[in-house]
């Protein structure tokens, strides 16, 4: 064979083998991380984890108060962030679609989407914790809601832009004002996609640690008082994993497994929602 062809084929073979190897490498980490997580986490998983409080080192206990705290903080964050995000996304896609302000907001929103979450924590510390004089569950919820907002804005806008214009025109020709068209026609058409956005936002914040470090802090005891420091799973994992006590470390692994399963379940559900919408 012509040596030029042989050389080109060889180079192609090398490059293709490398890209195959890179994919195996990337997937390998996923398997490795999940494998270790299940191995370490399952060994500590029992009913006690969900029914008992975090223990002092050396004694038995569970993760009830951080699980509860995470649920409360996350729910409130979603309750604050979702309406704001949906409204803002609505403006970008509907009222202000051709506005110059829209492209600025979209740009800023995209930056907020990947801004370092620890900076969000510092921001909320400056505006809430410092003036109030104490750490609180509210501050944690606000910090997380600031992460929810850009995610929901983005998906709401994208999904509303996918709604075909004839739908809007048909509704408008019946004499419906804009607000009704948006709420009763566009929202209904984009519902699955918007729900996906909310689910992805929940998945995103349920593992966030950095913004909670100096907002909701931590609490060793059972507390549902939003004005007091509140325990949350990621913070407890952080504290327990870095402790020298073996039983704390085991609980950290179990907590890590719970968070990961939650996040994976949420993102797979979100994906299933969008793909079933595409097929229908």
């Amino acid at each position: 064979m012509n040596p030029l062809f042989a050389g080109r084929r060889r180079r192609n073979m090398i490059a293709m083998t490398l890209s195959f190897a890179a994919t195996a490498f990337g997937l390998g980490w996923l398997v490795l991380i999940l494998g270790v997580l299940f191995w370490e986490g399952l060994s500590g998983l029992s009913l006690k984890v969900f029914t008992e409080m975090t223990p002092p080192p050396g004694s038995d206990g569970g993760l009830l108060n951080p699980i509860m705290g995470s649920l409360i903080i996350t729910s409130i964050a979603v309750l604050i962030g979702t309406p704001v995000g949906i409204l803002a996304g609505t403006y970008l896609a509907e009222y202000g679609r051709y506005d110059r302000l829209t492209s600025v907001i979209r740009f800023i929103n995209d930056i907020l989407l990947s801004a370092p979450s620890i900076v969000i924590g510092l921001f909320v510390y400056e505006i809430m914790v410092y003036p109030m004089g104490h750490f609180s569950g509210w501050a944690g919820a606000v910090a997380l809601s600031l992460i929810v907002i850009p995610v929901v804005v983005r998906t709401t806008e994208d999904m509303l832009l996918l709604v075909p214009n004839p739908l809007r025109e048909a509704a408008t020709s019946l004499g419906l004002p804009r607000a009704y068209v948006i709420r009763h026609v566009c929202y209904r058409a984009a519902r699955a996609g918007m729900l996906t956005g909310v689910l992805l936002a929940i998945a995103r914040i349920s593992g966030e640690t950095a913004p909670l470090l100096f907002t909701s802090l931590n609490n060793q005891f059972w507390s549902v008082d939003m004005n007091a420091p509140m325990a949350s799973l990621p913070i407890v994992i952080f504290q327990f994993a870095l402790s020298p006590y073996e039983d704390w470390q085991r609980l950290a692994w179990t907590g890590a497994l719970i968070i990961t399963l939650t996040v994976l379940a949420l993102s797979i559900t979100a994906r299933a929602l969008t793909s079933s919408r595409k097929e229908s």
């Binding site: 990337g26 997937l27 980490w29 996923l30 991380i33 270790v36 997580l37 998945a203 349920s206 593992g207 966030e208 640690t209 950095a210 990621p234 994992i237 952080f238 994993a241 950290a252 692994w253 890590a256 968070i259 990961t260 996040v263 994976l264 993102s267 797979i268 994906r271």
Partner: peptide, 17 residues
């Protein structure tokens, strides 16, 4: 999807691992 799941794993999990 598998690669994107890798992106979804919270950073604290990477930390403890």
């Amino acid at each position: 999807i598998a690669i994107e799941l890798l992106a979804g794993i919270p950073s604290i999990i990477y930390g403890i691992w």
